[in-house]
Design a protein around this nucleic acid. Structure first.
Lengths: 265, 265
DNA sequence: TTTACCGTATCGCTAACCGATACGATCGAA
DNA sequence: TTCGATCGTATCGGTTAGCGATACGGTAAA
């Protein structure tokens, strides 16, 4: 096509119903994912692929609406984004029913337990009950990590039709998060097969060093994986085998209790 | 043509930098606050004050971007909103330093403890460590309740210049949340004065029946209130006086530990 | 079957937005 | 102090992105 200088890279949605003004707005808010610090208008504009003027207008509007705030060092996300997360969480029946189950689980395993949701190549933490002091961002709701290298992600991949799982693996950005992250497709396929056999998945220091995580998938009424229950321990306190033996039945039971109940989708 | 009927109510921002396309986009996402259930395109459009076509386009785009998802019963918020909340939380230095403090506090009071942030007429919960089983939405991050009827809100109002506090009271929608909610300005002024004297605020069944909440304000480096530390107990287990005596020193100490440290603003 | 409402798709018109431009303030380095 | 760089802010005519009226097919309840 000879539109030499296309303004937007022919937005993935060349659908006439796709509004670039909406996409631009959200790209501004998404800038903080790459640059998690107070940003200037110019930085936000650049990160969103906008010129100064467009950035100025969008920032001004988002600020007026409470989705951006001014701090002494620049613009930061506004409290309104928390309201939107609340809307998500309160409407999610799975999050609701998982909360008491996770509390029970937390009591018996005495380690950090989480509920994560499958979002294609990533998983997002939706409920988190931490135990000890840990690296701060790692413990927050909304954190996302790649599906392929998390125990929960692999537990869900194991419950997906093989073809879909392969697709996700191939679409994933498989850069390692730690030196121990498994990144080769064949090795990952092995781990997934293992998870399918065992009913749970295990990740050893793949997203954080010193951390052992065990997870089982939560299935919806059609048998599709929609979430996972995680339990995370420290390798300074657990041997792999003990962790598997003691924790896996509890995690699997919790996941089973939540499976097949709601339509979740 | 006589544009007799202005399309938008001359948006609060008649500033030429205010983009109505941005405002429309966010109004769609905000619809779930009023109507927390799966919605159709028509419902979302109506809630956002848009016609069917505009709604269709915005919904289509938000869905393509992951900010809306289709469930069996209609459209619901998408997981991307959780990512944005994560961006907020991880960048907030106060949230970060409050997390270990809250864990300590949680250990000594053995009740639910929260960190809330002041957002004018509302407070938002940013960190929550719950104890027992409770009414579900009431325990979520991102939940917002009116400043005037929460202990944390009143603790912060007490730390604000009198004039500003009055302004917030007057701007507030003071409909009661429970039969015990105090809604009269003079009575609220009394409660705020009391909080100023004591260094903490108390709310008895004002946002939930059977609940007693005690809170102290966290001040920024300029002495302005930016957040509050809450501890919530059940009236079936606590007498007011015991709660005050046992809990208030701990909550005040936690709030003091966080005050005057960061620029927070 | 009828009716109502759903999601989806089309298309010409136009005003909302674009983006180039300019101005004053601030801050560090020279 | 004087630059130069970069910040936020403000203005304005041209045009394109988006508006909104309209239409179509499917589905579910009456």
């Amino acid at each position: 096509m000879s539109t030499a200088q296309a303004r937007e890279p022919a937005s993935p949605e060349s659908n006439p119903l796709f509004l670039q003004s909406v996409a631009r707005t959200l790209r501004v808010l998404e800038a903080f994912t790459q640059l998690p610090r107070p940003l200037s208008i110019a930085e936000l504009s650049a990160a969103a692929g906008l010129d100064k003027s467009a950035g100025q207008r969008i920032v001004h509007t988002l600020q007026a609406l409470g989705y951006l705030e001014r701090s002494s060092a620049g613009l930061v996300p506004g409290k309104k984004v928390l309201y939107r997360a609340f809307d998500y969480l309160r409407m999610n029946a799975l999050v609701e029913s998982a909360t008491p189950v996770l509390h029970e689980l937390r009591k018996s395993v005495k380690e950090r337990v989480d509920l994560s949701l499958l979002d294609s190549t990533n998983i997002v933490y939706a409920v988190r009950l931490q135990s000890k002091r840990e690296n701060f961002p790692a413990t927050l709701v909304g954190r996302r990590i790649p599906t392929f290298c998390s125990s929960g992600g692999r537990a869900m991949l194991a419950a997906l039709p093989e073809e879909e799982a392969m697709q996700i693996l191939q679409q994933s950005d498989r850069r390692p998060l730690t030196p121990k992250t498994i990144t080769e497709i064949p090795a990952l396929v092995d781990k997934i097969r293992e998870a399918r056999r065992d009913g749970y998945a295990l990740a050893l220091e793949e997203s954080a060093l010193g951390e052992i995580v065990l997870a089982a998938a939560v299935l919806d009424i059609h048998g599709r994986p929609v979430a996972a229950i995680h339990a995370a321990g420290s390798l300074s306190e657990w041997k792999e085998e003990t962790f598997r033996r003691r924790i896996s039945p509890l995690v699997m039971e919790a996941a089973r209790a939540l499976s097949h109940t709601y339509k979740h989708g």
